[in-house]
Every structure is written in structure tokens, then in C-alpha cells.
């Protein structure tokens, strides 16, 4: 066993010397680092662009949500007046004929429709303006 240990230790030393003397010819350090810097510049640029796009999207979504909320609230507030107007005016016949009987409540979908339309409209406007 001792002979084996000696052999292993000798082989270890020989291999260590072999690899200590290993000096392959590789390209210059400056060239390597310059190439790496160029790639890192591209990555940093991409990161900045992605962050800017995310900020623009967050702004657009926020404003769209606000516009939808305001449109929905305004429509809710104006809806009783609108129903009263339709009921008391000449439009009553044509408008009510479009609504199934007893379902005036369907008019309450108007605030939802207004909110959705306002949100989508504002989002599209802001998105297009950004580009």
C-alpha cells in the first residue's frame, strides 16, 4: 500500500508540474475584454429599452384604468336622466323596441360599455403616441 501511495504522490507531482508549465497561446487579454465589453454594452442597452417599454406600458394602463373609471362613474350618474329622457320622448318607441320587454335594466350595461370603450381608447392612443 505504501508503494502505491508513493506512486500516486509521484504521479500527482508530475501532473502538477505538467499543468503548471501549460501556457497555451491565446488571444490578447485586451482583445478578449474589448469584445466582452461590446456584448455587455448591447445587454445594457436592451435592459434600458425593456425598462422604458415597461414604464410606458404601466403609464398607459394606469391612465386607461382611470379613464374607464371616470367614464363608468359619469355614465352611472347620467343614466337615470338618460332613461327618463328616452321614456318621455319620441325615441321611446324605437329604443324600447330594441330592448326585450321588461329589461330596461339592460341599459345599466351602458356604464360598463362606456368604461371599457374609454379604457381601450385611451390605451390605444397612448400606445401609439409612444411609438
Amino acid at each position: 500500500m505504501r508503494e502505491n501511495d508513493k506512486d500516486t504522490a509521484t504521479q500527482d507531482d508530475e501532473l502538477k508540474i505538467l499543468f503548471d508549465n501549460f501556457e497555451p497561446l491565446i488571444s490578447s487579454d485586451e482583445r478578449f475584454i474589448m469584445h466582452l465589453q461590446q456584448r455587455l454594452d448591447t445587454i445594457d442597452l436592451l435592459h434600458r429599452e425593456i425598462a422604458a417599454v415597461r414604464r410606458r406600458n404601466r403609464r398607459a394602463v394606469g391612465l386607461a384604468a382611470l379613464a374607464g373609471f371616470v367614464a363608468g362613474v359619469l355614465t352611472c350618474l347620467l343614466l337615470p336622466s338618460l332613461i327618463s329622457f328616452i321614456t318621455n320622448s319620441a325615441l321611446q318607441g324605437p329604443v324600447l323596441s330594441l330592448i326585450p320587454s321588461g329589461s330596461v335594466m339592460i341599459l345599466w350595461l351602458l356604464p360598463a360599455a362606456a368604461a371599457l370603450s374609454a379604457s381601450l381608447g385611451i390605451y390605444n392612443l397612448i400606445s401609439r403616441a409612444a411609438y
Binding site: 501549460f22 497555451p24 488571444s27 478578449f32 466582452l36
Partner: peptide, 21 residues
């Protein structure tokens, strides 16, 4: 690191540099 990768790639310095990058 590049010296190590050159040995790992058995002398292929181009591949070693690509791996290092």
C-alpha cells in the same frame, strides 16, 4: 479561466474563448 477552458477544449482556443465569453 481561458487557459483552463483551452485545456478543457483540448487546444481549441476559439471554442475556449467563445465559452469564456
Amino acid at each position: 479561466f481561458r487557459r483552463f477552458l483551452t485545456a478543457l477544449c483540448c487546444g481549441d482556443t476559439q471554442s475556449a474563448d467563445d465559452l469564456a465569453q
